[in-house]
Amino acid sequence: MDTQNSAIAQRKLGLIELFMVGAKKGWNVAINTIMPAMVLGYVLVQVFQVTGIMAVLSNVAGPVMGIFGLPGEAITVILSAFFAKAAGAATAFNLYAAGTITAAQATICVMPSMLMGTLVGHYARIVLVSETNKKHTALMFGVALFDAAIGMLIMRAILAIMGIN
């Protein structure tokens, strides 16, 4: 396998072959990265809903989420994003499909899904691998949460300027 790979690497690939290589990576991402996260995200939503946690969380989180122009239910987006970016996106889409949030609010949800997404997994892959000074651990989580908050506010402002609600 290794010799085969290096032989391919030495030969310059044509456009179509290059596309095929990337497309296969894309399939791998869809099935091995996105799909498990989606299943997790959808099951989490189901758990939140069946147990009634969703209703409680929504009431508690309502005022806070309101700052970002989102209904209380959107707290579930934040919770699932923490586990995986794709799970955050899936949860937000679920809320959109159910009519709980509008398309504009779904756009705001992209910000926390990205900026505070996959925080645990990527802590190992980025912060630990780069050997960032251990005394700044809290700072790293803090900056991710801050970025997500500022992202939602900026997006809300942009949408307001564009006149979309």
């Binding site: 991402v29 869809a30 990265t33 996105i34 996260a37 989606m38 995986a84 970016k85 794709a86 955050g88 996106a89 899936a90 937000a92 889409f93 959109y96 779904a106 756009t107 949800c109 992209v110 899904s113 990205m114 997404g117 996959t118």
Partner: peptide, 8 residues
Amino acid sequence: MIATQAAL
């Protein structure tokens, strides 16, 4: 953005 937010 491509891989994880494709849903949204």
